[in-house]
Design a protein around this nucleic acid. Structure first.
Lengths: 228, 228
DNA sequence: AATAATAAATGTAAAAAGTACATTTATTAT
DNA sequence: ATAATAAATGTACTTTTTACATTTATTATT
């Protein structure tokens, strides 16, 4: 008996669960499919992995093809491997979740590609197991956000503390006290105050900060816990 | 252009990284391969997923075939999908880590199957990327142990607090204060004191406890954090 | 019967972290 | 000059974490 059996070969897909933060809301990027199968249905973005390509390279390629973005925060969520998940072909999917900064450039690209942002409390019906993937990814983000400062991936490079707070409030679905939140975030010592204010939401203006990746890596390596 | 291309089909494997705890040490289960490819080398256990089988069922099947065990704590680690990971065929592996209780029954089965436990600080050379899988799994266990009481999966159903402490000391590679450790564990309110003592390690004997799975699930659902 | 040996079990005070809560500040528009 | 708005700030109280040493139950030895 040979362990290799041509019958036991699978299509391997990568699907990307892409989150963004805009207008105080956490949102999921959903695509209108323009090709078969499932033409005109809504789905996450995805594609088959090519035989000469690694799974992670496929994920990078997919994200680039559909959004034009590179160097994005993207992590493997899990593999979806049930027998009947795709009625067409036997296919497993290695789902990846990504966090991106929504800006005007991405808004334009997204529109051209027939994509739309949906608030996470209001996700429409998606093909196959893509709704389950979205739910699982959201749960994962909540978990990861407990001990890694992933929030910064979703905000512009320069952000204010009140904006950061609304993001965390969107992820956790609860309110924080402004004094305590500010104290906690500053105690991590991973954001740098800039000599610049954002005056779009108040007359007084709020100081802009940037994330200190170098300091973050140092702290993380020494086992620091960034629990909010 | 059709997105389905027979050339882009993969073998999908599952490999299991199995940990146990014995004689105060955290150990990895390693197998002497009796079949090609890589006959007589050391490896984790694994097999190809069959076309009519889900990935998670394959993991359960593999664990049962090699160890005789069912109902084991097993979770997906991640997918290993680089192009050159297996020089024979293009094959991705969905690695799973498992935590098992080492008892005499399992010791016997393990011996029959040509398997051996290695202390985690002393893992031999394994085939392919199996060493990397072991390293990644160990890291994951450390992370998960921070907020989920997975330690109980590795101990006998009845265990003493000092034994639980040595397990956590093995996972974290550091010592805990006995008074503080006991206080912390008991504060979780997920272990039940039995009217029975283990006298194998002391004259006084240490009270045996069992894990309260029901209470644990309740607490977990309410968002409780079991951080040690 | 007394003593030595062994690991298990326990309490407390000090320090640190988390929580709850209200006012002042900087600025623009009226 | 005043009103309006969101940003920024401090403190007292509670809870959790940490550091640390002695007593207890039992068996083996004398």
């Amino acid at each position: 008996m040979d362990i290799y059996n041509e019958k036991d070969k699978f299509y391997v897909a990568v699907d990307c669960i892409i989150f963004g933060f805009d207008n105080q809301k956490l949102k999921l990027l959903v695509f209108d499919r323009r090709i078969d199968p499932f033409k005109d249905s809504l789905s996450l973005i995805g594609s088959f992995v090519k035989i000469g390509e690694s799974v992670s390279d496929a994920a990078i390629r997919i994200l680039k093809d559909f959004t034009g973005l590179e160097n994005v925060y993207m992590k493997e969520l899990k593999t979806y491997g049930s027998v009947d998940r795709d009625p067409g072909y036997r296919c497993i999917s290695v789902a990846q979740y990504a966090l991106i900064r929504i800006d005007n450039a991405i808004k334009k690209i997204v529109e051209e590609k027939g994509a739309r942002w949906y608030e996470i409390d209001n996700i429409p019906n998606l093909i196959l197991d893509h709704n389950q993937m979205s739910i699982d990814a959201l749960k994962r983000i909540e978990e990861v956000a407990r001990y890694k400062p992933i929030g910064f991936e979703l905000l512009p490079k320069k952000f204010t503390i009140p904006k950061l707070q609304t993001l965390y409030e969107a992820i956790y679905r609860r309110k924080f006290d402004t004094r305590n939140f500010r104290k906690k975030i500053l105690s991590f010592d991973v954001i740098i105050k800039l000599d610049e204010k954002d005056r779009t939401t108040s007359k007084k203006g709020a100081y802009l900060y940037k994330f200190d990746y170098k300091r973050y890596r140092e702290l993380q390596e020494s086992g620091y816990n960034f629990e909010i």
